[in-house]
């Protein structure tokens, strides 16, 4: 494992907002065809960390390496162009736009020439539906449907399919399952596995241990902006992970939380 060159690597990265230190000395590797689960309590710095990877923030210190080469993302677009795709909780989709239009925002297929280039609706719809169906969303077959009418899981899937289609190499998912029911969440997890199978590196943020364990190959736990644990699948028990995720709360309290979580 360790001899492969990681797609993305952070070396001693610090990020602060003025006087507020949010990330300290983060060192982390992300490999192709692997799911990295980023765990941690609210405010631990998970979102800040992935925004640093996605070019939203520029680290105050430390290095980001892509394919072993030091790199600096100037802005989200830059990171995006290099294959880093972020999918947010609500999928980064536009509810009142059609599936085809959603899929191609910013990179619309056109027909015609010069100033008369027109948005090619038919092609956009065809490709977007094909890609969605390949991710197992078979009950959606009309590219003109408004995305707002899709379920939360379908919207997530659309965003992920979109990222994969446009050649993402690293897929960053910030709490994709947070707002979803059990079935929908299972579906998103399956799509995460599919993305991994296709060789993408996936960074997956979640507060749910079950979801993390279902897809994770590699786990990193953030506590107050530092990496408190970095381990691979099977190296720690579920109890240990849950404990770490809550930032070291007492086991007894956690147990009761977990049982009530599962009951829901």
């Amino acid at each position: 494992m360790s001899d492969r060159i990681p797609i993305l690597e952070l070396r001693n990265v610090d990020k602060s907002f003025g006087p507020i230190d949010v990330l300290h000395d983060i060192t982390l590797k992300v490999h192709e065809g692997e799911v990295l689960c980023l765990l941690g309590d609210n405010g631990a710095g998970k979102s800040t960390l992935i925004k640093t990877l996605a070019g939203v923030y520029i680290p105050n210190a430390g290095q980001i390496l892509m394919d072993g080469e030091p790199i600096q993302f100037r802005n989200p677009r830059d990171a995006h162009n290099r294959g880093i795709a972020t999918v947010h909780q609500f999928g980064g989709t536009y509810p009142l736009m059609s599936i085809g239009r959603n899929f191609f925002v910013g990179v619309e297929p056109t027909k015609g020439w010069g100033p008369f280039k027109m948005y090619d609706r038919r092609r956009a719809n065809k490709i977007s539906i094909r890609e969605l169906q390949e991710f197992g969303i078979t009950r959606v077959d009309d590219g003109d449907r408004l995305v707002g009418g899709l379920s939360g899981g379908e919207r997530q899937s659309l965003s992920i399919a979109r990222a994969v289609y446009f050649g993402a190499r690293v897929l960053i998912l910030d709490e994709p399952t947070a707002a979803l029911g059990v079935k929908q969440a299972a579906h998103v997890l399956r799509i995460v596995n599919e993305a991994k199978r296709r060789g993408l590196a996936v960074i997956f943020i979640t507060h749910q241990v079950m979801h993390a364990l279902a897809v994770g190959d590699h786990f990193a736990v953030l506590i107050r902006g530092s990496i408190a644990a970095d381990f691979r699948k099977g190296e720690k028990s579920r109890e240990e992970i849950t404990d770490l995720m809550a930032g070291g709360e007492s086991m007894a309290d956690l147990e009761s939380n977990i049982t009530s979580d599962i009951a829901i």
């Binding site: 995006h80 972020t86 980064g92 509810p95 239009r101 925002v105 910013g106 948005y119 609706r121």
Partner: peptide, 22 residues
């Protein structure tokens, strides 16, 4: 019928996502 139109809808639909989509 133009890509610009798509951008206008995207801008109003979700500004941050539109920015990230380029």
């Amino acid at each position: 019928h133009s890509p610009w139109g798509n951008w206008i809808f995207a801008l109003g639909g979700d500004k941050e996502s539109a920015r990230n989509a380029g």
